[in-house]
């Protein structure tokens, strides 16, 4: 069990290469105080309700088939890491970073890419380049033996008829609507019932950090 925990810590430390310091600090806290769980971010569920209210129902239900899970993970070093920027962007760090949000705050159709635009679950964080990077070369400095962890299995329901649990941390991803509904959503993780807005009424966050221990009376 301890071993798994160490892996988790290393996993978080690995994220240091890409994430801002404040976030790492918070993640370590979470790892240390396991048991308090996802609730650290729970007080931000207001975002979910506001997004649900703001997105028109037809858009929630629309499906373009533009994106699949393979492409989704291709943009990420490991599940949960910020995706790289898959298109040309002017990275100047000179105050125009908000331009990302012109498209990624609300989504919609992009004539330039002939695709629907994915929506960020955290539009309030406007310094996008702080975490999201571009790819300007395919070459490596030296080869790496890095292996990613296995992505969560799909359809992690506990019973045939029960809703899948939430297999990822909610940090920066409290807003389910952004990624799981709408025409830009990855087809494998689109919900079949986009018009329902209180997601965590049925879907339980279960980030598996250690082996499940059954409840036993002391």
């Amino acid at each position: 069990m301890m071993k798994r925990k160490e892996q988790w810590n290393r996993w978080v430390v690995t994220a240091a290469a890409l994430c801002c310091l404040g976030i790492i600090h918070f993640s370590l806290d979470r790892a240390v105080f396991a048991g308090v769980g996802n609730d650290d971010f729970d007080h931000q569920s207001g975002k979910l309700y506001r997004a649900y209210d703001a997105v028109p129902e037809p858009y929630l239900a629309a499906d373009s088939g533009d994106r699949n899970l393979a492409g989704f993970y291709e943009l990420r070093q490991y599940p949960g890491s910020p995706p790289r920027i898959p298109h040309a962007a002017d990275i100047t760090f000179s105050g125009n970073a908000r331009d990302c949000l012109a498209c990624h705050a609300k989504g919609g159709y992009s004539a330039e890419f002939a695709k629907y635009i994915p929506v960020t679950p955290h539009p309030e964080n406007s310094l996008c380049y702080q975490c999201h990077v571009q790819k300007v070369t395919d070459e490596r400095f030296v080869q790496s033996t890095w292996q990613s962890i296995t992505p969560p299995r799909l359809g992690l329901s506990f019973l045939a008829s029960s809703p899948p649990s939430i297999p990822h941390s909610l940090q920066l991803r409290e807003n389910c609507i952004a990624c799981h509904t709408g025409p830009a959503a990855v087809v494998e993780i689109r919900v079949s019932h986009a018009s329902r807005g209180n997601c965590r009424q049925c879907h339980v966050p279960t980030v598996q950090q250690e082996a499940f221990s059954e409840f036993r009376r002391k």
Partner: peptide, 22 residues
């Protein structure tokens, strides 16, 4: 949300105990 009253039933449901163990 995860538990009914004193959890005598819901704490024995793995997914719910897992989400809200204590």
């Amino acid at each position: 949300i995860e538990h009914w009253h004193t959890g005598s039933m819901t704490r024995r449901i793995p997914v719910l105990h897992n989400a809200m163990p204590a």
